[in-house]
Write a protein that binds this DNA or RNA. Structure first.
Lengths: 213, 213
DNA sequence: GATCGAACTGCCCATTGTCAAGTTCGACGT
DNA sequence: ACGTCGAACTTGACAATGGGCAGTTCGATC
């Protein structure tokens, strides 16, 4: 499935890297990120237990690569949502699009999403991960700057925090199964997501009002 | 350390339950929730490796009890923030207080906070956990209902989602070490938290504006 | 003094990560 | 076409760790 069209003999099956990453996703979905083991991944990929070493080094390397892939997909989802906008879309629409892309990514790649933010499992010194992990925030930051260019640093930080935290929190609660009946039927979840984004964008576009107690 | 001053003989040291829960908190802080093991907890509590069984049954029972304790503390923090308000506090102030309590809890009990939302580690069928986990949401829900009583069901869901997700996401990102420089110095984090809450309350108090694209 | 729960010791079994060889395959130079 | 080389993969083993289960011992309470 989705193996790059290369070899498929007993050895060198060519897509082991992708197969192992796919196995990680499976396991995360079934039993959570802490249940991922090198051996189980190898088992699901149909290879022997230490076949991952040439590709990822050790376990942390595998998880880090998986997280980096997640970062790339997240950025791609956000960019896709932006690209799907009409040319004339305003800054508010663009900020909303980043949020929709974020939510779409989390829904389409729950395993990546859940693993990406597990600090203990990832080697943050990995350059590939650092680059992948930095992109999404930059996209959000740019969209925000376009929407509210006149804000001072403090107000901008507050709005970045609101937009990011709200969307991220929504995805997290949903992925982790919390949230009770708030977004129980799937259709309702989409509705809530849309309204949530509208509220965020409206709040971010509003003029600064310090001390709005 | 921090054992309630009771017995200290070889057996029945009287506060084993609390000592084990404290050990869980320590381990979570040092190495993350997945590093918690029954044996290590027992080690830190100064008891033998299977001393936890009479109190918690198995590992899942220990983690579930820990999560339930977290739920209780979270509700207590929110209630404390509400109680600290002046009598004349309005609905907006009360909603803000629940958010402050939530954030204060996450900051004061990072270990509990990180473990509470790890679905795979917890036995959701446990009645004690169910009760403890339900309280915080009820407090938020009440505060929201008082602030915006005239909203229809959909608009109320959106605002609940915004308030909860934003505060929760903020705490999550902070606890997990994400967020780059947004809330790097501690003083700045408090500033961002305060502004964030102000934005949330303002957005929740605003009149419904469907389709605010 | 008997009883019951709490806690201890010892043990078994399963699992895992990692290393150290072998083995096979594809590629490359001649 | 053929030999060689290196990387991908395999098998096997090792040490560590962890969870859980007896059976036992201790201490308090009745």
């Amino acid at each position: 499935m989705s193996v790059t069209p290369k070899a498929k003999g007993r050895h060198h099956h060519g897509a082991l890297r992708d197969a192992l990453l796919a196995a990680v996703a499976e396991i995360v979905l079934e039993a959570g990120p802490e249940a991922v083991t090198l051996r189980e991944c190898a088992r699901r990929a149909g290879v022997s237990h230490s076949a991952a070493a040439p590709h990822f080094g050790d376990k942390r390397g595998l998880l880090t690569a998986f997280a980096a892939e997640g970062g790339r997909r997240l950025a791609a989802a956000m960019e896709a949502a932006l690209a799907a906008l009409p040319e004339a879309a305003g800054a508010a629409e663009r900020l909303a699009a980043t949020g929709r892309g974020y939510i779409a990514f989390a829904r389409a790649n729950p395993a990546h999403f859940r693993l990406m933010f597990r600090a203990e499992l990832i080697d943050r010194a990995d350059p590939a991960w650092q680059e992948a992990a930095g992109q999404p925030f930059m996209l959000l930051s740019e969209a925000m700057a376009a929407l509210a260019p006149a804000l001072d640093a403090r107000a901008r930080r507050a709005r970045l925090a609101l937009a990011w935290a709200a969307v991220h929190g929504f995805c997290t609660l949903r992925a982790e199964g919390a949230g009770g009946d708030l977004w129980k039927p799937e259709a309702r979840a989409a509705e809530v997501a849309e309204d949530l984004i509208a509220l965020i964008v409206a709040a971010c576009a509003a003029p600064a009002s310090h001390g709005a107690s």
